[in-house]
Each structure stands twice: as structure tokens, then as C-alpha cells.
């Protein structure tokens, strides 16, 4: 029996007056892993921005239900409390704000929303230690300012570390694999896989085969010119890696 977690219906969205999404329809049930693929500029990252409520993007039409609730009516932080997590394609640097303070503010805000007491300093540090091990994030990085001076790979691992801390219901990995070497990619994938469960779902946006091999999505969607033009299983991903997007383009243009 399927239990829809996320339902996107006829979603149109634009940024700076330019329409990027032109009618996306997508349903994600609990426990499913979906991959979204498509050429550059197809609208993949716009979709993740819309799901998380980035104010720079405007929804012009359509609706999104998350756990049956109107997602678009929620503020970004409320979506986070409801369990939506985005691993940013370009994680943001916040000078002067230590990872510890940043994460504690995030974790405790979520706990408050769920009616839980904030974690004590000791509990929190214990949690940090545990989760850091998941992505093998250096202790030193955790004490530095958020993403400041991190290498590309460190930033991505830091994203997965935060995901582990916040234990989201729906995680969106926006090209988390780009710029990672093979070892780092395995660490990141392991982190993602450990969080898999019957309740949790993921959306993986990627250009590369490797990550899909590790994470193994059940569903693959091809986004082209702001629409999902093809749905399929893992075999669709394989074909994209083998042949590229040209055949999709031709199919759509016809």
C-alpha cells in the first residue's frame, strides 16, 4: 500500500520573471528513493529551491502537498521542522558562526517545534560526535565557522553530517556528488544509505552514475525544459548514462 509523502501537482515556477518550471507532476511515497536527471538548465535545482521555500523563486501555478498539508504555505524553517532537508548544491559560508552553534540552533528549533526539551550541552556534543563519525567529518571542521574555508568535498560531507543530525523525512540531495572523489562519494553514499528507512524518502538530483549505483533509486525521472518528460526505473538511468540526453531531446521535440 502506498502512502504519499509528497505530491507535486502542475507546478509552474519562475525566477526573476523567467519561467523555469512548466507543469511538474510528481508523487513520492514513504520509503521511496527517486532520482531526478536532466540536462543543465532543465529546472532540477529550481525544483529543490521551490520545495524548500527559497524566496528568490516564485510559484506561479500548481500546488504541493507534503504529508497532506499545503507545503507552499509554510515558511522555510517550518518545512525544515516538518522534516524537509536540502543538501545544497553550493553550501553557503557563514563567517564567524561556528558549526556547533549553528547546528545547536537548528536541532533545538526542531525539538521545540516537536514539543521536546532542548538538548543540554553534553547531550548535544554527544550527538555531534556520533553523527560526525557517520560521514567521517574531522572534529576540527565542526569547530570552524559554517563552511568557511572548507574544501568542496568537505562542504558536501558537512551537508550529509547536518542531514544525519536533523534526521529528515524527505531529503533532497542536489548534486551532492559533484566535486567528490571516489572515497568521499562512498562516505557520502554510506551516510545517505544509513538514513534509509520505511518512513523516509529521498530525492537525488545528479549527473553521475556512481551515486545512483550506491544509493539505488527505485524511480528515475527525466526533467527537460521545466517538465518531467519521462519516468522509469533504474534502467532509465542506465540508458541516460550510456547514451546521454540527445534521444530524450529528439523524442520530446517530435
Amino acid at each position: 500500500m502506498s502512502n504519499p509523502l509528497l505530491e507535486i501537482k502542475n507546478l509552474h515556477a519562475s525566477v526573476a520573471g523567467k519561467e523555469i518550471l512548466r507543469g511538474i507532476n510528481l508523487t513520492i511515497n514513504q520509503g521511496e528513493v527517486h532520482a531526478i536527471m536532466g540536462p543543465n538548465g532543465a529546472g532540477k535545482s529550481t525544483l529543490s529551491a521551490i520545495l524548500t521555500g527559497n524566496p528568490a523563486y516564485e510559484v506561479t501555478e500548481g500546488e504541493i502537498l507534503y504529508k497532506g498539508k499545503d507545503l507552499l504555505a509554510m515558511k522555510p524553517e517550518q518545512r525544515a521542522w516538518e522534516g524537509i532537508f536540502l543538501s545544497f548544491q553550493y553550501p553557503v559560508e557563514i563567517p564567524g558562526v561556528s558549526m556547533v552553534n549553528f547546528m545547536r540552533a537548528a536541532v533545538n528549533a526542531q525539538r521545540e517545534y516537536r514539543g521536546l526539551q532542548p538538548l543540554t550541552a553534553t547531550e548535544f556534543l554527544k550527538l555531534m560526535r556520533e553523527k560526525r563519525a557517520v560521514v567521517q567529518l574531522d572534529n576540527k571542521l565542526a569547530n570552524r565557522s559554517v563552511n568557511e574555508g572548507f574544501s568542496g568535498g568537505e562542504k558536501k560531507r558537512n551537508e550529509i553530517f547536518q542531514m544525519a543530525m536533523l534526521e529528515p523525512t524527505l531529503s533532497i540531495l542536489d548534486e551532492t556528488d559533484s566535486g567528490l572523489d571516489v572515497d568521499a562519494l562512498r562516505i557520502v553514499s554510506d551516510g545517505v544509505n544509513r538514513l534509509k528507512s520505511a518512513e523516509r524518502s529521498s530525492i537525488v538530483i545528479t549527473h553521475y552514475q556512481k551515486l545512483l549505483e550506491y544509493v539505488q533509486p527505485q524511480f528515475v525521472h527525466i526533467v527537460y525544459k521545466g517538465r518531467i518528460v519521462k519516468d522509469g526505473g533504474p534502467e532509465l538511468g542506465d540508458r541516460i548514462f550510456a547514451e546521454g540526453f540527445d534521444w530524450i531531446r529528439q523524442e520530446v521535440e517530435l
Binding site: I94, P95, A105, A109
Partner: peptide, 23 residues
């Protein structure tokens, strides 16, 4: 937005960022 995506309220996020700025 990054802070908000992690569930930190806007006002707290501003406070956090300003604190970092003045650190």
C-alpha cells in the same frame, strides 16, 4: 535561507549571522 532551511527561525538566523559578523 541556508539557516532557515536547517530550521532556524528567521529572527534567530539574523541574530546568529550578525553575531558571526561581529565575532
Amino acid at each position: 535561507f541556508y539557516c532557515q532551511q536547517r530550521g532556524i527561525k528567521e529572527e534567530d538566523a539574523v541574530s546568529l549571522i550578525v553575531g558571526g559578523y561581529a565575532r
